[in-house]
Computed example of a mutant assay.
Amino acid sequence: MQTNDSVSGHDAASDACGAANSVVRRYHAGQPIAGPEPDWLAQETPLALEYNGISHATVLATPCDLEDLALGFSLTEGILRSPSDLHDMDIVESSQGYIAQLTIASACFSQLKQRRRTLAGRTGCGLCGLESLDDVVRPLPPVAGPAQPIEPSAILRAMDALKRVQPLHQQTGATHAAAWADLSGEILHVREDVGRHNALDKLIGVLMQRRSPHDTSCGFALITSRASFEMVQKTASVGIPAVVAVSAPTHYAVQTAEELGVMLIGFARQRDFTVYTHSHYLA
């Protein structure tokens, strides 16, 4: 499966995974402007997650970087305590989609069975299928903050670069992206998906790989969507100190970010952004 670790030099027409060809007819003012022509559509495929042979959840996702998605989902949903709790993973293609077969530590599997959660497949809602309010808000320790103050110019640099490193969105216009930038504003990783939660889980998955996990205090996350409560909770669960969103945050997201020590920035467009919490993280 193709990955997007390189954030420069992408040719969207040839390198983006997760796109399928279609034929369309374009109209303007009710009149056709051309004959049938090719176009690209973002793929949306079921991914079933199995833990120690037991099916737990199914999400609808763009079928690339699925290993990152499975690991990130498992961490941000509290199924794994750390990447070391994942012993093995296989991504298996089936006639209906993909299956992520994860072998996890026995203590994690025991806890998972006790939770008895059933998640419905989704691309937009991050809380569908939860059994109780206790499943929504997980107790998390506050984030320590960035390793050093973040320059506002670094945020502007990263947001400007983000526009150029989304090959799948350039092809289809139908995907979200989540990116990781270092404290200078250089984007190091980008993950794309039809679902904003999936894109963030993919990013967290690549950041938390077992072999060489990043120091999450040495950078910040960027998302091409609104900042919801769950997006803040996911980043806080792995110690990311700042989230920069293109769109608006919700009130619950701001409240959660304040409590968990996450600097939350919204409306990051062109040369402007709005800081909602922990502005003292800025230089």
Rank of each mutant, 00 (worst) to 15 (best):
L133D: 15
A199S: 10
G30L: 06
Q96I: 09
V7G: 01
Q166D: 04
L222Y: 01
D193W: 07
S95E: 15
R138E: 14
W40Q: 06
I79V: 10
D272W: 00
M89K: 08
S55W: 11
D134R: 10
Q148M: 08
Y281A: 03
E77N: 10
T216F: 01
G173M: 11
S74Q: 03
S14K: 07
S237P: 04
I204G: 02
A257N: 00
Q2K: 15
L203S: 00
G72C: 02
R122C: 14
I204C: 06
P241Y: 07
S212H: 13
D65R: 13
D272N: 06
H56R: 11
A154P: 02
Y276H: 14
V244I: 11
Q255G: 07
I187E: 00
C17D: 13
T224C: 04
A107W: 11
S106K: 14
D65V: 13
D65E: 14
C218W: 00
Y276E: 08
P36M: 05
Q171N: 05
E77G: 00
E131D: 12
H176S: 05
L112D: 07
A42N: 09
R226S: 07
L47Q: 06
V137K: 05
S153H: 00
H251P: 13
M159W: 01
V7K: 09
S247H: 15
D5Q: 14
V190E: 03
H56A: 11
E259F: 04
A20H: 14
R164W: 14
L112K: 03
G173A: 01
P83W: 08
D135N: 07
N4E: 08
L162W: 02
G9I: 11
D85K: 11
D68N: 12
N21T: 12
S228F: 05
H197G: 00
D85M: 09
H280S: 15
L264T: 00
P32L: 05
D11P: 06
M1H: 08
H56G: 07
V143H: 01
